[in-house]
């Protein structure tokens, strides 16, 4: 049997907001350890991997591994109906019928909303996403997630509006990370220097560079990843010319959300 409870819907609402516009379907794998979710976008440019350990839930019971594919657009719609302080229960019954039930209960007025989602295919087992040692990456940038979101917004407002193919070039050079994009009649560069101030120790921008690196990405994807800021105060961007870039948000000791993105090969 699978039975999970979260006393505040916020965490799950934020997770869905952070993935549902880019990924249409995800593989949800529940095991004794927790929930692992993976999804790839239809153009196979981006991949998302989420881990929420059992400790992230107020109640977690999963006595048999269960894997289910779920439609994220439908789930996001349902979760938009949930208030932040609603109690969420996730249940799948003993007979493993291909349905999972999400219940939202308002602690104030006792109103209960029940949503059943049919499985939409599944991988059957969690996908094996390779983990690469830190040494494989040429540069690593850690910054406040709100700052990263602000940068993405600025770049998007300057880049050709309506052009889905706006490219952002991320370059790391010594103690600077540059974000560059081209608009219709000009270019825009945002330079972030390494900072670590005494008065704001929790909001540093840290740059670790082994080699200079400069990679092009789809701005649309990066902009969408920046929604992970609701889940964590910090984002870590790992860059390599030989591997997909990783944008990682750690979720308060209980897991993470990692977005992987292929760089664009410029003609």
């Amino acid at each position: 049997i699978l039975e999970l409870r979260l006393v505040q819907a916020t965490l799950f609402k934020n997770v869905l907001e952070a993935i549902s516009d880019l990924f249409s379907k995800a593989n949800f794998d529940f095991s004794g350890t927790g929930l692992e979710l993976q999804a790839m976008d239809t153009s196979h440019v981006a991949l998302v991997a989420l881990l929420l350990r059992a400790e992230a839930f107020n109640h977690y019971l999963c006595d048999r591994d269960l894997s289910m594919g779920l439609n994220l657009a439908d789930m996001a719609k349902a979760f938009r109906c949930a208030n932040n302080d609603d109690i969420i229960t996730i249940k799948a019954e003993e007979d493993w019928s291909d349905t999972v039930t999400f219940t939202f209960e308002s602690p104030e007025d006792g109103e209960i909303s029940i949503f059943d989602f049919d499985f939409v295919g599944t991988n059957g087992v969690p996908l094996e996403i390779p983990e690469f040692p830190e040494s494989e990456y040429q540069a690593k940038v850690r910054m406040p997630s709100a700052k990263f979101m602000r940068i993405c917004k600025k770049l998007s407002s300057f880049g050709d509006s309506g052009d889905r193919d706006t490219v952002v070039i991320i370059s790391v050079d010594k103690e600077c990370v540059n974000f560059f994009t081209r608009g219709k009649t000009g270019t825009s560069t945002i330079v972030c220097r390494q900072t670590q101030t005494v008065d704001k120790p929790k909001e540093p921008t840290l740059i670790e560079m082994k080699e200079q690196v400069s990679l092009a990405f789809d701005l649309r994807y990066m902009n969408s990843f920046s929604k992970g800021s609701t889940l964590s105060d910090q984002v870590t961007i790992s860059l390599s010319s030989n591997l997909p870039a990783v944008f990682e948000y750690k979720i308060a000791e209980t897991g993470y959300i990692r977005y992987y993105m292929l760089p664009r090969i410029e003609e």
Binding site: M40, H44, N123, E128, L243, L262
Partner: peptide, 14 residues
């Protein structure tokens, strides 16, 4: 599985 194949292809694309 097809998904695992897609994933392996993804990591070999760079």
């Amino acid at each position: 599985t097809p998904m695992q194949n897609d994933l392996e292809e993804f990591f070999s694309m760079v």
